[in-house]
Simulated scan of single mutants.
Amino acid sequence: MTTWITICDTCKRDDWEARSPGETDGETFAALIESAAEGVEGVRTRRHSCLMGCARGCNVALQSKGKLAYTVGEFKPSPEAAEAVVGYAALHAQSETGQVPYRQWPQAIKGHFVSRHPPLPDSDD
């Protein structure tokens, strides 16, 4: 089943303007994640303006129908962080419940989990 990586493209870390004027940290991170996710089975990406985690930028949501969903944040927009997000998303896609054993987590994603959300019910009952 596909795991979606939703990347906040409006995230800005404190010194973003000095580092890359005209492009937000979120845009930079989105491009890195999109590149890292190319050809990875079971993983797709999309951008969204503002995940409302401004104090923890750069933010990403990992979601799949019927599985636990996660929000991760406080990343520097780096290739290593992007690879870790995509690596975790691939493991999430392979997991029946969305839960991934800690020992399998990419090192660069550890310490970046903000929240975990249960899957939505299958019906309105």
Rank of each mutant, 00 (worst) to 15 (best):
Asp25Met: 05
Asp25Trp: 03
Asp25His: 06
Asp25Tyr: 04
Gly26Gln: 10
Glu27Leu: 14
Glu27Asn: 11
Glu27Asp: 13
Glu27Gly: 15
Thr28Phe: 03
Thr28Asn: 13
Thr28Asp: 08
Phe29Lys: 13
Ala30Ile: 05
Ala31Glu: 15
Ala31Arg: 15
Ile33Gln: 06
Ile33Met: 06
Ser35Val: 06
Ala36Met: 07
Ala36Pro: 04
Ala37Leu: 03
Ala37Glu: 05
Ala37Thr: 07
Ala37Tyr: 04
Ala37Gly: 05
Glu38Cys: 01
Gly39Met: 07
Gly39Lys: 05
Gly39Phe: 07
Val40Leu: 05
Glu41Asp: 12
Val43Met: 01
Val43Tyr: 03
Val43Phe: 02
Arg44Met: 07
Thr45Gln: 04
Thr45His: 02
Arg46Tyr: 02
Arg46Pro: 02
Arg46Gly: 10
Arg46Ser: 12
Arg46Leu: 12
Arg46Trp: 02
Arg47Phe: 02
His48Val: 15
His48Asp: 13
His48Trp: 12
His48Glu: 15
Ser49Pro: 07
Ser49Glu: 14
Cys50Thr: 15
Cys50Pro: 09
Leu51Asp: 06
Leu51Trp: 07
Leu51Pro: 06
Met52Ser: 14
Met52Ala: 13
Gly53Glu: 13
Cys54Ser: 05
Cys54Gln: 06
Cys54Tyr: 05
Ala55Ser: 12
Ala55Cys: 08
Ala55Tyr: 07
Ala55Arg: 11
Ala55Asn: 09
Arg56His: 10
Arg56Cys: 04
Arg56Met: 11
Gly57Tyr: 00
Gly57Glu: 08
Asn59Tyr: 00
Asn59Glu: 10
Val60Glu: 09
Ala61Met: 15
Ala61His: 14
Leu62Ala: 06
Gln63Glu: 14
Ser64Gln: 03
Lys65Trp: 02
Lys65Cys: 01
Lys65Gly: 01
Lys65Met: 03
Gly66Gln: 01
Gly66Phe: 00
Lys67Arg: 14
Lys67Val: 02
Leu68Thr: 06
Leu68Gln: 08
Leu68Arg: 08
Ala69Thr: 02
Thr71Arg: 04
Thr71Leu: 11
Thr71Met: 13
Val72Asn: 05
Gly73Val: 01
Gly73Phe: 01
Gly73Ile: 01
Glu74Pro: 00
Glu74Asn: 10
Glu74Lys: 05
Glu74Gln: 09
Phe75Gln: 09
Phe75Leu: 10
Lys76Ser: 13
Lys76Pro: 00
Lys76Glu: 15
Pro77Tyr: 10
Pro77Ile: 06
Ser78Ala: 09
Ser78Asp: 06
Pro79Asn: 11
Glu80Trp: 04
Glu80Arg: 13
Glu80Thr: 14
Ala81Arg: 03
Ala81Thr: 03
Ala81Gln: 04
Ala81Met: 03
Ala81His: 11
Ala81Glu: 05
Ala81Lys: 01
Ala82Met: 07
Ala82Tyr: 06
Glu83Ile: 00
Ala84Ser: 13
Ala84Glu: 07
Val85Glu: 10
Val86Leu: 01
Val86Pro: 01
Val86Cys: 00
